[in-house]
Amino acid sequence: MTEATMAVTTAQAPAAPAARRLLIASARWRWWEFAVWIAAFAAIVLLPRQLLLLNEIAILALFALSLDLILGYAGIVSLGHAAFFGLGAYAAGLIAKFGYGDPLLGLLGAAGCAAVLGFATSFLLLRGSDLTRLMVTLGIALMLQELANRESWLTGGADGLQGVTMAPVLGRFDFDIFGRTAYVYSLCVLLVLFLLARRVVHSPFGLSLRAVKLNPLRARAVGISVNVRLVAIYTMSAAYAGVAGALSAQTTQYVSLDVFDFIRSADVMLVLVLGGVGYLYGGILGALIFKAMQDYLSSVTAQYWQFWIGLVLVILVLVGRDRIGALFSRITVPFSRGARS
C-alpha cells in the first residue's frame, strides 16, 4: 500500500490540472476590481474639488483594510485599532518635526513602530475570548492616548503636535492646499499595500489564516501553529494601521490626541461592517460610503448626522448584507456575464 501511495503521488493525478485551475481561480482579478482602481485614479481629474475628502477616504480605507486583515481573515476582533493608527501618526509627525521630512521615510518609521507595538501586544490576544480581546485592545489604545497626553514635551499634549513640515514626495511633488498631491500619494500607498495584502491572503499563509478563523481546533489538527500565524498577521495589520496614521499626519501636517480615540477604533469597525469583511474591498467600499454619508449628512444636518449613520447601521445589520448583496447581484449579474463573454 505504501508503494501504491507513492505511485499516485509521483504520477500526476488526473484531477490535478482541474485542481490547479480551481485553486488559482480564487486569486484571479475580476473585472470590477479593475473598475474600482480605475475609478479611484480617474477621480484625480474628475473630482478636483473633492480631493481633500478623497484623501481622507483613501486613508480610512487603508485603516479599514488593516482591520480587515485581522478581523476578516483571522477572526481577531479589536476595539483599539486606533492604537496603531495613532502611534504611526505620532511617529511620522515626530520624524518630520525633527528634520527628516521625507514622506516615505516617515511611512517606514511609522510602519516599524506600529509593527513593534503590534508584535508585542499580539501575545496578549492569543488567549481568551472575543470579549477579552475587545477589552485588551481597547485598553491598550486608552493607555497610549493617556501616555501621549502626559508626555506633552514630545507630543504637544492636548495642543497637538505642531511644526510638522513635509518635504516633497520623492523630492518632486509638494503637498498643495487642494489635496492633489496628498490624494495621489495616499492612493498610491493604498494601492501598493492593497496589492501586498491581496498577495498575502491568497498565499498558503493566507489560506492557513482562513483555516484558523474557521476552525482553530482543526487548524491545529493539521499541524498549524495557530499562535505564530496570529502573531504574524497581527503585526502586519498593525504596520498597515501605522502607515494609515502616518499618511494622516503627513497630509494634514498635524497630529492631535484624537488619533487614539475610541471613536476612531469604533468608526473603522463600522466602516468594515458597512463594506463587508473578508474580501479586502470592504474597507474601500465602507470608507467611501461612510465618508460620503458623513460629508453629505453633516452639510444637511450639522449636529445630528451621526443619527443617520446609526440608522443605516441598524438597518444593515437587521436586513443583512447578504440580502442587499443578493439584490445588487440580481441587477449586476447580466452585466457581468456580458463583460466576461
Partner: peptide, 12 residues
C-alpha cells in the same frame, strides 16, 4: 504554510 509571497495553488 508560512509562505506569504506565493499564490496558494502554485506548487505542483
Amino acid at each position: 504554510g508560512r509562505e506569504w509571497w506565493r499564490l496558494a495553488g502554485s506548487k505542483s
